[in-house]
Write a protein that binds this DNA or RNA. Structure first.
Lengths: 217, 217
DNA sequence: ATGATGCTCCAACGATCATTGGAATATTGG
DNA sequence: CCAATATTCCAATGATCGTTGGAGCATCAT
């Protein structure tokens, strides 16, 4: 009967393994990056601004928690989320954090207000507009992530190519830029650039993680 | 532009506060207990088999993450979940853990198989049966938790009173026992007892956390 | 008041964790 | 085979965390 204690402890300990994976900011950032599609270790390291060794260590822990999988491909090791549910978990924990932590809500509000205007909050209505050609949906993430998954009718211009490819965009239509999600600031920067050049640009607050497209192969 | 790094770090750090709250087995257990309704510190400590001081420390951290609220009531301090979403988070992280961690799945399978038979996996069909009086739904949690929230048509007999109150139960109907959830072993023990006495007892794998009844006041 | 109860704060210990440097391994291209 | 690249392994560092003991504070019963 008091063997129950040990069993219970074991059960909660197992769940805590997932919690432990989610208790480091860097690991969370890696998860968000992997929501965009599979990536190599040093791509991840570069995007998260950490050393390759540290990234490898963090990724190792995520793998130990079975949240990510690896596949060796030549010289590289590709990491990807083990499961679409992992992306779902990231969305849930982020939503809870935004709900509970005032600091976070304030920071996000400020980010949203800075480049003025938010965008249509809902994916489907945006796609509908894009289908009719009434808006241009612009994916400003790196080309590889666009390739792995993107919104229907979206056009890809990675942020760092944006300035040199402005001629591809129309000035008479609204342009809705999106990136990885609200914690990724690329769409915000893109809107800044476009506005300065006279485009009618908006930012979509959501990102790829939100509408589990098909980030995993 | 490289001020983005600092902003991003800050955003992920905030979310990690929630992760940190969820990275200790004991804190997770406290969350599950609080899914059952508000409780005092030493009730929580007793049920989680830890010292009052340790419970207080853990609860303090949960409060710092704004996942729980406190209310002083005379000599006691009542803790409760800040929000129904916190219970939802517990369900999600548990589901992810069960999905990803083989060890956990095996342990749960074994628990379910031990007292043989699982029960109707779905709440609504069970309630329908209970309404028609075809089964007896038995809540074996402590009386206070029953009072805070319970399934419609459920009857309350706390586990430690079960043996002395067997006469209240019919032998000609199926009895479905439930408790806090799959990590709480009270329903399993109750089924063991009932079976030995010749009752037709089943165990409902789900618990109160799953169907966010109204655990918060 | 006095003592008892319920809880929290503070300080300390050991355990665990993030991070870094150095070496080791595996693969590719010459 | 050698050099270069990509990644992991191992050991060592300092930081953080869980846990416990002791003291402090509020509340209640007497």
């Amino acid at each position: 009967m008091k063997d129950n204690r040990r069993t219970k402890d074991m059960l909660f300990e197992q769940v805590a393994r997932i919690g432990k994976a989610a208790c480091s900011p860097k690991r969370l950032e890696l998860i968000e990056l992997l929501c965009q599609g599979e990536k190599t270790v040093d791509a991840l390291a570069k995007e998260a601004s950490i050393s390759v060794k540290l990234a490898s260590a963090h990724l190792g822990q995520l793998r130990a928690a079975h949240l990510v999988e690896t596949e060796k491909q030549g010289k590289h090791v590709l990491y990807r989320l083990a499961n679409r549910d992992v992306a779902g978990f990231w969305v849930v924990i982020r939503a809870l954090a935004e709900d509970r932590l005032v600091e976070l809500r304030l920071a996000l509000d400020q980010l949203a207000r800075h480049p003025k205007e938010l965008a249509p909050h809902d994916r489907d209505s945006l796609v509908k507009l894009a289908r009719k050609g009434e808006v241009v949906v612009l994916d400003v993430r790196p080309a590889g992530e666009f390739l792995a998954a993107h919104l229907p009718f979206a056009r890809s211009i990675p942020l760092d190519e944006l300035k040199t490819r402005l001629s591809e965009l129309p000035k008479d239509k609204a342009i809705v830029a999106y990136c990885r999600g609200p914690y990724c600031l690329m769409a915000r920067d893109a809107v800044d650039i476009l506005r300065k050049k006279g485009f009618d640009a908006l930012r979509l607050a959501e990102g790829v993680a939100e509408w589990g497209l098909s980030p995993v192969r």
